[in-house]
Design a protein around this nucleic acid. Structure first.
Lengths: 211, 211
DNA sequence: TAAAATTCGTTATTATCTGATAAAATTAGT
DNA sequence: ACTAATTTTATCAGATAATAACGAATTTTA
């Protein structure tokens, strides 16, 4: 039986990967899978898979394994992917436009409904049917539209200014591409994507192997 | 005294953040800092800072703390940021172009020297002085140019095809934006940036707080 | 139908990571 | 020069996470 105790971040970070592999299995018409079989595909221990999944419920069956479709749907629910979300991008530069242009987020239920920038040359530009608006209108937009997640794709100083506006107007999640740590209340989630940091990890590893 | 034992990934992941904070201190003209002071700024424990840094050497001084500039330079060296790297981007779509356009990587020594795509409409396009080349030329390019890091910004099936070409031609690091796990030899580093995964973590957290 | 093989859920063990503390070294004030 | 305050280094204890082991339930096979 599973308990309701706190789930660690490490487990949560693994869920999307399980979800992806299960999706691939579904695509290949595989209807059942054992933790052992899955562990070989994913290069993790079977024990970890069983323990991770067991945190959320007893989805498997002894002697059988896991029903792929059932497990896929369960993880989808756990991750909140059975719902859809409205996102606004702040920063209409290269990255902001690239994110808006990438169609796969929409397929998963993450819908970009607006982009904001302060650069007059960008304002009015149309990205995938979404017009870039003046960032001065952001607060008003948040008050009149339901926005779940704010995407910060702008220089760090600006990101620090914009974050409170998002937080104070009901945004519950921030996807932060700016190279700065944001200080927000506990009930707001910040997910950092510090691209420079991950590049640095590569350079560390490259050199470490050589030495 | 510090030992040469294996450094854990958890520590490495924290280094870029230390580096960033030290850079900010330098910019503000702060020349010395204690682990205690830094811990308050970074919202981590002083103990962790000291232990992390101590893995690489004794950079601090009892009664004084750490010399900001010295520590900054040390971490720079540890991360391999005192060298520069040549990168090629495979995938000239929105993301590939956005990465190439973002100037800050170059400042850190990460130089994009080529972009490849198989789409004839993109080939020949000029991004920040770098022409998009036909991906068919990739292998030849790798043989005649020194490339440290390959950036995969293309659909997952294509990424799986391209990865071996990079590996077999001396590329030591792969920055993988494709939503797939790559199978490469141990001496090649893969750093995954699975954007969808991090979005899913936000949706999980948003819902968790509500329930 | 019954025995053998699977495979999960759970408990136990091991490993790792984090936080706290004592000892040593340095600085700063008097 | 001497003392008090500071702060690192090194060590140790506690917490957390990952792996392994095992009993119970189910399926498969003969």
């Amino acid at each position: 039986m599973y308990t309701d105790k706190k789930i660690s971040v490490a487990v949560i970070k693994r869920l999307p990967r399980y979800y992806r592999y299960l999706g691939d299995l579904l695509d290949n018409g595989i209807t059942r899978i054992s933790s052992n079989d899955l562990s070989k595909r994913m290069h993790v221990t079977a024990s970890q898979i069983r323990q991770d999944l067991n945190k959320f419920g007893c989805f498997g069956q002894q002697g059988y394994g896991y029903n792929v479709e059932l497990l896929y749907e369960e993880i989808k629910k756990i991750l909140g992917l059975d719902k859809s979300y409205n996102l606004v991008i702040i920063g209409g530069g290269n990255l902001g436009q690239a994110l808006a242009n990438y169609g796969n987020f929409g397929k998963r239920g993450f819908n970009f409904i607006a982009i904001f920038d302060r650069n007059p040359k960008l304002i009015g530009l149309n990205i995938r049917g979404i017009e870039i608006l003046d960032v001065a209108e952001l607060e008003n937009f948040l008050k009149t539209n339901h926005v779940d997640i704010g995407v910060l794709a702008l220089p760090k100083d600006n990101a620090k200014q914009v974050a409170p506006i998002l937080v104070n107007n009901g945004v519950k999640g921030i996807w932060n591409f700016s190279h700065v740590d944001l200080d927000v209340p506990d009930n707001v989630v910040v997910e950092n994507v510090h691209l420079t940091d991950s590049l640095m990890q590569i350079s560390y590893a490259i050199n470490g192997d050589i030495e």
